[in-house]
Design a protein around this nucleic acid. Sequence first.
DNA 1: CCGATTGTTCAACTATTATCGAACCATGAC
DNA 2: GTCATGGTTCGATAATAGTTGAACAATCGG
Lengths: 115, 115
Amino acid sequence: MTGAPRELPHPDTADLVLTDVLFALSDPSRLDLVRRLADRPLEGSACQPVNGEIPKSTLSHHLKTLREAGVIRNDPHGRQRLVSLRRQDLESRFPGLITAVVDEPGAAPPGPIDL
Amino acid sequence: MTGAPRELPHPDTADLVLTDVLFALSDPSRLDLVRRLADRPLEGSACQPVNGEIPKSTLSHHLKTLREAGVIRNDPHGRQRLVSLRRQDLESRFPGLITAVVDEPGAAPPGPIDL
DNA sequence: CCGATTGTTCAACTATTATCGAACCATGAC
DNA sequence: GTCATGGTTCGATAATAGTTGAACAATCGG
């Protein structure tokens, strides 16, 4: 009775709360993931931090935090899940915010770049 | 031996960390204060939430969180302190961010407006 | 100098978050 | 159907943050 509902709930764009969005983005690993999602959606397994695996329950928790804040979508995709940034929704609700956060000048590039 | 140093430390603009800034802004009462600071600096006593007083130690704690993240300055000003938004510094380090946060469309106006 | 005012810091407590193993479940492949 | 894969949820524990009273400091007015 604990299984995963196929479709997870996502808040409507109009209901997004700025402080919740800011909080979700205020964690370094979550922010890094959001930046990796800026270009393209990722399959769930690709959401792992670039260096070193973390337990899947921990990853799932971070995805939940981002999803419930309305930052990302998490949709069924075959056997996996497709995680995507709700960029349009965020832009319409909080103009300029997500761009400012994702395009921070001087930020280390997200993803496998770090060597 | 626990007294307040006259000048409190403020991080350099170059050292500001985005996740720390986002976290500092992710609290509703802190965000409200930041919005009230958007126009003009406030004396410390004017930083009280508009409805209902909070203990001074609690207020001081929130100011510390904002100050250490680099969101505000807190400078001696006679017997009081002058609290101001580091808007220029934030704008140069994270272009567009502080404007997006402070000018959120549809946000309730900050300050004593709520009746 | 003395008192009132404003405000920081400390310490203790509470509450919220993060982390992670274990249990469970849906899907796709066979 | 059965198995392997990918992923959510639960429950417990650890870590971090918020709240507050009390102690202490610096300033200004008399």
